[in-house]
Every structure is written in C-alpha cells, then in structure tokens.
Design a protein around this nucleic acid. Structure first.
Lengths: 292, 292
DNA sequence: TTTGAATGGTAAGCTTTTCTTATCATATTA
DNA sequence: TAATATGATAAGAAAAGCTTACCATTCAAA
C-alpha cells in the first residue's frame, strides 16, 4: 500500500536542491553522480511522479517536488533530532535518574554527592525522595525509582544490592546522661535506662541486644519528635551514626561495641533489569565516591 | 557523527513491542526471525546500547528502549503521513490548482465547469481569478497561476497553448438599432455608426475590419460601463460571443461574417514545466469537456 | 558554426546490506 | 523429563546500493 521511503534518497534530493545540481550534490555527499541519479529515479518511481523536471539540462523541481521539499526536510530533521537525543542519552549527557534513599542518607550524604554528580553530568536530571528502608525497597521493586540507597531489608532475588558503606550503631542520649561520657558501650549497661524505640531499632534484632527492645515501652517514628524526647531527657535510643542528628548540641552519640552492630548501606536496583545510561552514570559515580 | 537510522529496523522494534516477541513480530512482518534479531542488534550498535534486555528469554525493553519507543513511533508515523499525503497528491485526491481566466470565460464557462470538476475531484482545491488576456499571460508566465484560459496573446516559446474553443466576433448594439435585425454583417455596413472600442477590439487587428478602429473615438474597458453606453444607444461595439452579456434584454449580438473573425480560447501553461497532479487533472477535465 | 565543458542519464559489474535456512543454547511448560 | 517455547549464531543467497566508464544534450565562448 504505502511505499517505504528511505531517508538517504531524501537527503540526496535535499542536497540536489541545496547544491543546485546532481553533480554538486554528489560531491557534497561523497557519492558518484550516478548514485544520486539512480536513487532519485527510484524515489520518483515510488512516489509515482517526478520530483525534478526532465529533459532540460538543469535540475529544477516540479510542482510536486516543491510540495515535497519542506516535508522531506522536516522528516529528515525529525530523524536527526531523535538520533542526537538518543545519542546524548547514551553518552550520559542527558536523561534522568529517580532515586530513593533512607532519610539519613538522603539528608546527610546525598546533598554533597548529588552536587558533585550534577557538576560532572550537567545534562542529567535527578529526583530524590526519602522513605524508610522498607519503602525504598518497595519503590525500587515497583519501578517507582530506578535506584535505592538503603540498608538491605528483605533480600530478594529480583533485587540486587551493592554495598556502599557501613554505618555503626550507637546509643544517643542527652549530654548530662550517665552514658554520655562513655566512648564504648556494652549492651548490658543500657538495661537500667528507658529506651525509646525508633524505625531503626530493628537493626538490633538478631543480636544479643535485641533483648533491650522487649523492655521498651515507647516507639517514636518521627525524627523530630524523637530528638525532642531525647533533649527532654525522657530516655535514650539507638541510632546508626549517620542518622544521629549532629545539629542538636545537647545530644551525644556513643558507639555500641558489644555487640558491635552496623547497618550496611548500599545501592539497590532491580536485578536482570538494565539501568538507564543516566542511572548507570549515577551508580558508577556513587561507587567511585563511597566505595573507594 | 550521527548514526543513520533506517526506518525498517524501527518498524521491527515496534512490531516486537506490539506483538510481544521476536518470533511474533517476524510472522507479522513476513520476515524470518533472524532477520529481526540481526536488524535489532545492528540498530542497538548504532545507538550504542541495547533496546531489549538480554539473557532472559522474553523480549522486554530496557529503560532506554522505553525512552525510544514513543519517538520511534512518532518518526515512523511521520514518515507514513508524508508518504500517504504524497500519494494522495499523485492520485489526484488532494492538491490545489490556481487558474486565471479571461473575464468572459471566468464568468460564463468556469462556474459549471468547476462545479463538475469539484464533483469528480472532491479533494482538490481551486482558485480562479480573472484578468484580461495580457494579464492572464503574465500570471502564467510568472507562476502566479499554473493554468490560464485565454485567447492567445503573445505567442511565447516558454508558454504552451492548447486550443479549447472558438469564439466568433460580432457586433453588439441596442435592439432598436438598424443593425439589430441583421443576421450577418459585412464590416462595411458598420462604417456609418459610432463604434465604441473595448478590450477585445484588438481582435479586429490584422483583418480588413481593423480600419473601423481608426475612426473610433471612444474606448471603454469596463464591461459594466460598456453595456451602459450600449443600452443608452451611444454607439455599437464588437465583442466575442462569449463576452456578450446576455442578461441585458435590449442588447443584440450580430455575428460579423465578412471578415469572419474569431478568438481562439485555450489553455495556457508554462512549457517545459510539468504540472502539479491537480493541474494535470484539471487540464484533462477541461479538454474532455470542451474539446470533444 | 564549432568546440569544449557543463549538464544528467544508462549499463555492467563490484560491494555492502539484508534476508533465509539451518542450527544452537536456554528457559518455560506439560 | 520431554516438548515447546524463547532468541542468538553462522553460512550462503538475494537484493540494494555504489562505482567506473560511457553516452546524449545543452550552453557558452572561440
């Protein structure tokens, strides 16, 4: 039904128009003149009528040829646009990455990291959202984001996890708390004090210190509330070091040494699913910055 | 610099997406499955990265593939649109003709002719303007219109003239004029009466009757004015029959038989310049209607 | 007019591209 | 576990595209 026009002959036609003749076009296109003639003839046959006037020496467009010229130009330009956009993506000069990260990473690590990335890849757009590790997991799994930065939650063979950094767990308390002067802690020494649980408390699970959780009666998920409670001296809590809010002068972080606990923070992506070039660039950048 | 994407592989990719696999696509495209595989691989190499996930059995798009899909669709659709528009023009289902005609033809002949043409070629647009023969000539020559319908003015080898009809010259006078009862006239019998010249009077030139022009003192180019003068009995004039305004009851047309004079009305177009398909259709239609 | 240098078109053969057949490796399904 | 999908690979055939060599025509200057 429809003839299939190839783009090359269209370029030939445009070159003939621009250069003013078959010979000139051939020279510009690094082709022989017969190649141009034959391609044009073939094109004219497909279209059912000539584009150039026949007989008289010069190459001049027929009325139909005049009609065709702007559309050929547009079509070729459209092709080139798609091409160069695609290539820009391949070359990581354009594109976008959607990232999800746990709040501590999002607020403490990402700002400087992303600033550096943006400087290296000015064409790439980024969206960063935070969520607790379970939610990050889910966002990656559902494809809402391409990359997640989180502590490994539920190992899943449809997800791949690449470790980026370790984050040791410690106790957070007010500066006038008896524990505040310690530099290392055994979990037993926490027993006497009221413990406020938070979203990161499950990191204690599976360790001897898990016993502490059973005696706790307070669970605060919101970070602002949690720090307020700690500043008020209501109790102590455990947090990964990265989640410890340094901007509160009266709070202290004391590492837990026995048992030594850490969360392993890493890059989460869907296994068996390749990344967009932009996400690939982001991955490489993060590994370069954090892992070495 | 830019890779040259051919449209066929793009169609292959879209077919794979739509049909859900290489085999299904191959079947729909009447190609073998390896043809599809190889074309896709080549395309991926040009773009610098894969469009489909490798390894796992099913054909599923990479993020880059997802980015490409809509653009490939648009590009292919753009191509098909250009193609089908061009084909509609070739098939004379679309297009436009610009015509110029002498006033008599424009007002007496064209209305019914164009109505018939429009019925046969509903997709073709027409513009018709009138002008005296010299102006029609010029409009065709300058390319303001593609076709002219006129009496041949200055034969010119850059214009081609195809005769459509003969139009005999006669005298026009009021019904109470002595000449009004005649059915045929010799130019000598006009001598005693005041002759009003008009735009068509030069048709007498080169004939014995040309002598009449030398005695005339009145030249009226506007047709409305001319008929008003004739109705007022100011004098007589000569006109081609087609230019005789039949709607004025008191005016009579008496053919000049000696010498017999006629204007040859025909189609004027630029020689060595092919016509648009729409104009071609118009030419053929006019010849069919008038010349046979 | 003649000659020379343009124009574009044609023919034969080579190169590249594209496709097909046959075969393979792998994964899913009965 | 066999059967039947999936897509990839290799070798050769077919088609498309290109080049060289040559022709016909036009146009301009000698």
């Amino acid at each position: 039904m429809l003839p299939e026009l190839k783009l090359t002959p269209l370029r030939y036609v445009l070159a003939i128009i621009d250069e003013g003749g078959f010979h000139a076009a051939a020279k510009q296109l690094h082709r022989s003149q017969p190649a141009i003639s034959m391609a044009v003839r073939d094109l004219e046959e497909r279209l059912g009528q000539p584009l150039f006037e026949k007989g008289n020496g010069k190459a001049m467009l027929t009325p139909f040829g005049h009609w065709c010229e702007p559309r050929f130009r547009e079509l070729v330009a459209h092709h080139d646009r798609v091409c160069s956009d695609a290539l820009a993506i391949t070359r990581q000069q354009r594109g976008r990455v959607d990232i999800a990260a746990v709040p501590s990473v999002a607020s403490r690590l990402m700002p400087t990291l992303l600033a550096g990335f943006l400087a290296s890849y000015p064409g790439i757009g980024i969206s960063l959202q935070d969520g607790h590790s379970e939610r990050v997991n889910e966002m990656v799994l559902k494809g809402e984001v391409e990359l997640g930065i989180t502590s490994l939650w539920m190992p899943d063979d449809t997800l791949s996890f690449t470790e980026l950094l370790h984050d040791d767990i410690g106790v957070v308390c007010r500066d006038d708390h008896p524990l505040a002067q310690q530099t290392a802690l055994h979990w037993h020494t926490l027993k006497p004090y009221p413990l406020i649980c938070n979203g990161t408390s499950r990191l204690l699970e599976g360790s001897p210190a898990a016993e502490l959780l059973t005696h706790s009666t307070l669970y605060i998920s919101n970070m602002i509330s949690l720090t307020a409670m700690l500043e008020a001296g209501v109790g102590i809590t455990t947090l990964p070091r990265l989640a410890f809010p340094e901007e509160y002068e009266r709070l202290r972080f004391v590492p837990l040494t026995s048992p030594y606990l850490e969360r392993r923070i890493g890059l989460l992506k869907r296994a068996e699913r390749s990344l967009s070039p932009a996400a690939e660039a982001m991955c490489a950048y993060l590994l370069r910055q954090l892992n070495h």
